[in-house]
């Protein structure tokens, strides 16, 4: 086990000296490593990185994202990904190879304002992200409460091997769909259960940089399900 030093940083903070193979949210200038984001710096044997606490969502291939349909042409939908890029969902992805703009009506599938769970199929620096709905659990989301969190908090909301999200789901019996882009949809058996889930998600959003968060969320959930909502 290598020793990892953690420290709160802001851009321009000096986090280490020397050469590191892997740098994430950090820059090397004359053999000194500086943070480029507000976040938590981790310096290990081979890498120095800053886990950011703010910033917009930058798409990555394979990410599950929850998007809002904002426009469509005869051939494709345009989706708001809560990012600096808008997503492109071609009609073929839904209608298949036989798709014909004269026969198939895109608005019958996804209308403007609909929320759609998608996967990022392709993305590079030169074009807008290509989305797909062709996988299990993807497609239009028909019900639930929409919660927006900072995309930087998503890893914490999921937790180690899903520990955080499992804790919330098990205690509230809610189903929570998490988009890597910071859009979360909660559906559940009752308004009260949804309310408690949303409260837990807000706790993670606000306290992502703090320690023993899972325990505190657990305490809140157990307190709430057995009695009052604090």
């Amino acid at each position: 086990m290598q020793e990892i030093r953690k420290k709160y940083v802001i851009p321009g903070d000096h986090i280490a000296d020397g050469n590191f193979k892997n740098l994430l949210n950090a820059v090397e200038i004359s053999n000194k490593i500086y943070a480029t984001r507000v976040g938590i710096a981790e310096v290990g044997m081979d890498g120095a990185k800053v886990i950011p606490l703010s910033g917009i969502y930058i798409p990555r291939v394979g990410d599950l994202v929850i998007c809002k349909v904002i426009d469509h042409s005869a051939m494709a939908w345009e989706l708001d990904m809560n990012s600096c890029f808008s997503g492109h969902l071609p009609a073929q992805d839904v209608f298949g190879k036989e798709f014909s703009p004269s026969h198939d009506d895109l608005t019958k599938v996804f209308g403007i304002g609909d929320l759609v769970a998608c996967k990022v199929a392709n993305f590079d620096r030169s074009r807008n992200p290509l989305l797909t709905t062709a996988d299990r659990d993807l497609g239009k989301i028909d019900s639930g409460e929409v919660v927006r969190v900072s995309p930087t908090r998503i890893p914490r909301l999921i937790g180690k091997r899903g520990s955080m999200i499992n804790t919330i789901e098990q205690n509230t019996h809610c189903k929570i769909i998490i988009g890597q882009n910071g859009i979360v949809v909660v559906s559940g058996p009752s308004a009260r259960d949804i309310l408690i889930s949303v409260k837990a998600i807000r706790m993670v959003d606000e306290g992502a940089h703090t320690t023993s968060l899972t325990q505190r969320v657990k305490d809140m959930l157990e307190g709430s399900t057995s009695g009052n909502i604090g």
Partner: peptide, 17 residues
């Protein structure tokens, strides 16, 4: 602008709610 469009569109779920 696109930005404007996206902000004005309220999600269907939200509108129904």
């Amino acid at each position: 602008s696109h930005q404007k469009k996206s902000n004005v569109i309220v999600e269907h779920l939200r509108r129904i709610q």
